[in-house]
């Protein structure tokens, strides 16, 4: 790398149009070469130095670009200068490509290392946190502890995705799997990330003491109640049961989050605003997932597909009510006929 850049800078110096600027050029080029050499020394040492190195290289590159821009103003462009420019361009391109590759690999490697502390949990800890997410603690005066951990929330979101898929399949939906899979993932992750950042923003406005990581963990563990409720009610279709679970389990997990937020906020107005928003969003999300979800998707599909009615379709017609006294039975017959037709068409 250094060998490519060094001749380029040398040629640049040699092709400098004005010898008055020679000293500056030499200095600029010289410093660049020295830095490159330093870099070459460190590059062999270890991979951990890459970040620092990367930063230094970027500064250097800015310097070099500035020098190049200065120089291109010169009127003299002889063959030598042209060749120099060409070789420099090629070297620059190669350097850029290599650097991009290295920085990409480095950022991936670094990201995994950065995220690792948030996944540092034991199974017992996860179990107790899952249980605690359903137990609100009435402690308002002292800020309650929130564990900054992402394993549990992430797994809960993936579980919720799987449960949603299951619910969509078993419900009488026109199932367009590709759309549904994407929608399920989008909904769950969108809710988790979107509401967390929104509440974090509100918390910032309301001067609550909570970090983004804590917010993500809090809301993520709050989804445990949702998972249980949806898993049960997608399999047992009873509205009363759903409302009971919605109030009980959903309410408990919401209360737990509200209690934590209350203990970390000062002032009644702020508390009301923050906790009201969070509670409303969390409870309504569960309602939304249970009732409206597949219907919304169905509606979207219908509008996307447009008029897609098969040409030969038997539509049950109403039996004319001849006598006013026979209206009630006729209505019943019509309803049954329609129901039969619907079941037949769906098969």
């Amino acid at each position: 790398m250094a060998t490519q850049a060094a001749p380029a800078s040398g040629v640049r110096n040699g092709a400098g149009p004005e010898w008055g600027g020679f000293e500056e050029n030499i200095q600029g080029g010289g410093s660049a070469v020295i830095d490159m050499e330093n870099m070459d020394d460190t590059s062999g040492s270890s991979f951990e130095d890459m970040g620092e190195l990367h930063q230094r290289l970027r500064e250097e590159e800015v310097d070099a670009d500035a020098a190049a821009a200065e120089e291109e103003d010169g009127e003299f462009l002889g063959m030598k200068g042209f060749k120099g420019q060409l070789s420099r361009q090629v070297a620059d391109q190669m350097w850029q490509a290599g650097k991009r590759q290295a920085s990409k690999a480095f950022s991936l490697y670094a990201n995994i290392d950065i995220l690792r502390p948030y996944f540092d949990v034991e199974p017992a800890q996860v179990r107790s946190r899952l249980l605690e997410s359903m137990i609100p603690i009435k402690m308002v005066n002292f800020p309650q502890k929130v564990a900054g951990e992402l394993y549990g929330p992430l797994m809960l979101v993936f579980t919720l995705v799987a449960i949603l898929l299951h619910g969509m399949k078993t419900s009488d939906t026109i199932i367009r799997e590709g759309t549904l899979m994407g929608t399920a993932i989008g909904t769950c992750f969108g809710y988790w990330l979107g509401v967390s950042s929104f509440i974090y923003f509100l918390a910032y406005l309301c001067n609550a003491q909570i970090t983004m990581l804590q917010m993500l963990a809090l809301l993520g563990y709050g989804l445990f109640g949702h998972c249980i409720v949806l898993f049960i009610t997608y399999n047992i279709h009873l509205h009363a049961l759903f409302y009971l679970f919605w109030l009980l389990l959903g309410g408990l997990s919401t209360l737990r989050m509200v209690a934590v937020l209350v203990s970390r906020t000062v002032g009644p107005t702020q508390r009301l605003l923050l906790c009201g928003t969070l509670a409303a969003l969390h409870m309504l999300f569960l309602l939304y997932l249970h009732f409206a979800y597949h219907k919304v998707v169905e509606g979207i599909l219908d509008t996307l597909e447009g008029p897609n009615i098969p040409p030969m379709q038997r539509v049950p017609r109403d039996i004319p009510a001849v006598l006013p006294a026979a209206k009630l039975p006729v209505a019943v017959v019509n309803a049954t006929a329609k129901a039969i037709a619907v079941t037949l068409q769906s098969h």
Binding site: I112, R116, F119, Y151, I174, I175, R176, E177, L301
Partner: peptide, 30 residues
Amino acid sequence: RDGGSPEFAEVFVIIWFGAVTITLNSKLLG
């Protein structure tokens, strides 16, 4: 026309995306 069947690309994506997610998770767990 009815949908309902997972399409080819989707099965493909689920398997590879899921495998990559599990792998990253196990890497993150140490």
